[in-house]
Amino acid sequence: MQKHGLNIYDNLDQGKFPQFVIPSRSVNNIVYDKKLRQYILGNANAVRSSRNMSQLRSYTQLAWLAFFVNRLVREGKSSTLRDIYYSSQAFSIDFEDQPESDNIIVDLEAVTLSPREEFHIFPEERSSVFGDLTIEYTVPGYEGKRMNLSDHPDGYLIGPSLSSAELVDTSAELVIAIEKGGLFTRFVEEKVHKKFKSIIVDTAGQAPRSTRNLLRRLNQEMGLPVVILADGDVYGEHIAMVIKSGSANAAHLRELTVPDAKWLGVWATDIEKYKLPTIPMTESDIKRIYDLQKDPRYQGRKLEETIGGLSKT
């Protein structure tokens, strides 16, 4: 970050317009890496120059963000996507709306090839975890403090402190990711964590990056298999897919995928097999099916068949 700062400083001092080189995140530059089993960015770069009037504003926003997260990291403070949007106003950096500021954050990730969590920027927490897992905090003021995640039946928010904590010990043999909060609560009530010796994670819909990162760490560091319990529809299937193969939006990032995770639950083929009741699909549901069929992440897998199966219902 300091390197970038120096670069800008020198440019200004020499009467040159500073610029950022950002790996292009345009659709053309997002490719699927079969080896990594996730989307990655290609080689194309985009230049954001302060010389170009139409880019001047977003250039300044990016420079501000670098400056701001530098402060965050230096002072050991955290922020959220929304907080960044509001903080900008104190520096006369005017974002039109939060999507614009979120986008600049992704730009900074791409420039530095680091996830925003490294800059202490977190999404609003909504995803939670429950089960026999002991962690040790690393955040300032809690360093070395340990905690077991089965102590609180509502589960623990997967926030900045949990994301940065060390994973110490677990008796669980399985990680179950659940799409819905209601089911998560039921699983805790039904003591699924005990019956199946598992850690239960509520992804609350599409899993946030911190959750995906936690799932990956549980899989890689603790050697636990991950199963995903998602709805038997195109959306549930895609939630599972993003956990397995990552998203196009985070193509510039690594360490967010669990390629070996398994999708459990009702499959499309089961609907026919067991003659299950269904809700008729809407037009947008059908469109989604065709979109997914073109997605390289679904190519040549069993999942592809299930899409075909879904399209029949």
Partner: peptide, 12 residues
């Protein structure tokens, strides 16, 4: 603004 941010960022 850019100048201000760069100055702090670079530690100058």
């Amino acid at each position: 603004l850019i100048s201000q941010f760069a100055t702090e960022l670079s530690g100058k």
